[in-house]
Amino acid sequence: MAPARSFLAPLSRTTVPFTSSVRPSIPQLAFAPLEQLSKRWILRGTKIENKKKKANKNFTNYDLREIEQFSLIDAMHYIRAFEVGRNPTSSKYDLAVRFRTQRSGPVVRNRLRLPHPVKTDIRICVIAPPDSKVADDARAAGASLVGEDEIFAQVKEGVVNFDRCICHIDSLQKLNKAQLGRILGPKGLMPSTKLGTVVSNVAQAVRNMVGGSEYRERDAVVRLAIGQLGFAPEAMQANIKAFMESLRKDIGQMSSEKEVHEVVLSSTNAPGFTLNGEYRGPNSISPKELSGPL
């Protein structure tokens, strides 16, 4: 291997001025004595140009029998230890679900309301006439900002103090006229029918957004913040069950085949724990011991 290369380098350097513009790089090999070039080198050189490796149609999945799996309580026991001394409001449990699925094809994408919401302080802006029934409903459902022209004026000044924006279907024209797309667009806040943020039933949409979470499949994995660090095992179990149930429904509606391959529970500062689907293992501690404060 090595002698062939070291020989080749000076040789090609001498030949380059004459050949580089006319000949492609492969025929240059003919100048080198063939017996000095290993067969493998030629093969490797030609292979790259002629054949591209065919990509697998499915995502690669590994056998999980070799890896250690944990019950929910065991995983939480470890994770709480890894998160000791951290700010309990900034660290979160997260769940990653891996599918057995094709590389191409439809992906799972939806939003759901967990039984125990993870993030509750989300600020929602509703664009609707401020003194209408729609606006009252939206306020009752938890919107922090409701209005039309005042909001437009505020946003134009650069004051955007909300995290989500919903528009009532009748106010859409006004919104488009106000030309806020340049400001809201880059922030991903501009309501559009495609994203489901232009709706007729505003109250319902707001309710779904407060404490709701979105998830989406990327590279065969769906990730979701599944709980606050202070959650008791029962609350986590309820959340995980709700999420898995929702995923099952999503998969059921799809034409392509998908199966859940692996479920991994992790957190902001802890390693990932593959769950075995059980709540308690034989050597687990009592769930009460994990219910207290951190």
Binding site: H77, Y78, R80, A81, V84, G85, E289, G292, L294
Partner: peptide, 16 residues
């Protein structure tokens, strides 16, 4: 050390 302590004593709150 605190992670080890917390693992062995899950009921004792430990804060920083």
């Amino acid at each position: 050390m605190m992670p080890r302590m917390k693992y062995r004593n899950p009921t004792v709150p430990m804060s920083v």
